[in-house]
Design a protein around this nucleic acid. Sequence first.
DNA 1: CCATTTTTTCGTCGCCACGACGATAAACAC
DNA 2: GTGTTTATCGTCGTGGCGACGAAAAAATGG
Lengths: 228, 228
Amino acid sequence: MAEYPSFAVTVDLVVLTVRADALHLLLVRRGVPPYEGCWALPGGFVGIDEDLPDAAVRELAEETGLPEPVGHLEQLGTYGRPDRDPRGRVVTVAWLALLPDLPTPVAGSDAASADWVPVSRLTPGQLAFDHDRIVADGLERARAKLEYTPLAAAFCPAEFTVAQLRAVYETVWGTRLDPRNFHRKVTGTPGFVEPVGRSTEGERGRPAQLFGRGPATLLHPPMLRPDR
Amino acid sequence: MAEYPSFAVTVDLVVLTVRADALHLLLVRRGVPPYEGCWALPGGFVGIDEDLPDAAVRELAEETGLPEPVGHLEQLGTYGRPDRDPRGRVVTVAWLALLPDLPTPVAGSDAASADWVPVSRLTPGQLAFDHDRIVADGLERARAKLEYTPLAAAFCPAEFTVAQLRAVYETVWGTRLDPRNFHRKVTGTPGFVEPVGRSTEGERGRPAQLFGRGPATLLHPPMLRPDR
DNA sequence: CCATTTTTTCGTCGCCACGACGATAAACAC
DNA sequence: GTGTTTATCGTCGTGGCGACGAAAAAATGG
């Protein structure tokens, strides 16, 4: 293999969660050059005997401190502009993770400090490398996937109410949805959610039925975004 | 960069076209080990100063002999199992290309011979490396994208009839569609196709109006597959 | 030339999903 | 008790879609 160009390969993670009615992105502050002190996506180099999904899962566990896999993880895309890393030729495989709001602190096992940042606070040019573009692609993917998959439930805990699920859609899409029509749609789509049999207690207003994630992987028909 | 694991990076192409009412895949016969004599996806190594889309475009032009970009090309996914290439650690970025049926012979500039193979003829384990899985992912992506994008037109020449477009859907999906409802849907979706002003001549039956690709990138509402 | 066939294109009808609401139920706050 | 908040159930009109019928415009076969 010595006759072929040599690359370094990394994984980078676009980790999204919904907290306090705002979409948040997990970022780390770089402790070493290049882009020292800048915000960047969590990630790292792929081991020489490591599969790509394994590397993504490992990095996610390292950054969030969660050993068990929760939420959703999928490959987003691969970025390899020759000038994207001043250290040399680095190709990165980006992954998109959708997580429920974790009470766990994100205290990094890494030296770099990690933090949740509202995506509304992101300004272009703020992130290291080409991470601006990767984040933009990840947000677009997440917004699109809510339409035709039940992945919105990945932002929720194991048991959730229809209102919580609706809040996810409203937060990710930045729109308001009619509670009555949303309720009809969610409970009427086979395999989207499954009733647990219990209800919430001690909340404001009428108690709400609790649901868990259903077996469906695709929504038929899709949950259409307003306007557009 | 010497402190990090070293990878080779390749691009592999899933090139699809519709000819003779069957979905065809472009394959090459390998002339060198490993998998010598086996069918494989066209592809090759990424240059040390080459961007990933450029490498994909270059390989596509080399294999099809077409200098100008026609049809559609998008990144499909990246595959990097440690044992996927016996020569060493090779990560491949797979691309999906949808092309109109080219009268151009695919006579390779490469030593390896290239050929269009009906996807119905493909049997598991027939392809080199992990190309079976890459092809499966590409087919699934293509079938799904016909639903909510106007990409079916990428399989057609610059000017085409509604019946030609319908044949693309029927071939890729393996279903039959009602010509009247399909006509209403296609001409009624804004930006999908645009009339050229001329019609076919010398064909059987009533002459059909010719259309070109419209400016839309997403279909609203989507073209739903029957059943499912 | 005329009938037949083939294919395109325009309509019609019924159903169902969805948006826009109204109304009711079930908890808590006071 | 009253008022507030939230969840859940209905209703009604519109629009898209599946299942057809029918007309238009050519080639084909006598």
